[in-house]
Design a protein around this nucleic acid. Sequence first.
DNA 1: TCCATATTTCATGTATTAATGAAATATGGA
DNA 2: TCCATATTTCATTAATACATGAAATATGGA
Lengths: 108, 108
Amino acid sequence: MEQSNAVKALAAIAHDGRLSLIRHLIQAGPTGLAAGALAQLAQTSNSTLSAQLLTLSNAGLVRSQRQGRSIVYTADYDKLGDLLGFMMMDCCCSSSDICGPLLQRLQT
Amino acid sequence: MEQSNAVKALAAIAHDGRLSLIRHLIQAGPTGLAAGALAQLAQTSNSTLSAQLLTLSNAGLVRSQRQGRSIVYTADYDKLGDLLGFMMMDCCCSSSDICGPLLQRLQT
DNA sequence: TCCATATTTCATGTATTAATGAAATATGGA
DNA sequence: TCCATATTTCATTAATACATGAAATATGGA
């Protein structure tokens, strides 16, 4: 992942409401969640939620698919993995001081 | 790290200039870099640079220390590790679909 | 076709962010 | 003390982001 894409993705999740949304979608798994269900979980209005989902979608972090009357959103695992990979490898792990302890924590 | 702190840190690095700055500081290691050296690396004006460093500092991602006439900035490794830890563990790795492959990549 | 449901789009107002150049502050040396 | 260097602060302007509610769109069923 290039830095410009990483910046877009980071900006998308650098927002309390949007970060909560993507965490809900990750927990929901591949089945995803309909927009209405997300609005209930996030306790926000439909239009606000729709704008937040659009931002996440433009950053490539979520995908959507119509199912009947609902539109179901899912987290894009590949893109999230790419973002974490960028931060771990390209950005921060040029310093083993940062990622050494972190990797140890993750491996336990 | 709590989500509200993570959002602040993410917002701080969700900017091309600031992300480049912190990458330079990480590569520079514990010695850090003076503001002037950073301005040259980033090819930006002093006042713009100062504002960007202030944003990173308010997010807790960098520290500063006067050395003679210069002010030397260093990346805060602990805070960066905390942020990555939050994203890996609290946020995204509730799904092993994301972090399984990622950890494999990191371990090779 | 008509209606209820589900979601997005649009227009608006407000707040936040970002870059810029000039002025101010702090330090060390002559 | 005076001066050059290093950096920040300030005021201004432009751009972007955010939330809101009303209206528009799309779907499925009666």
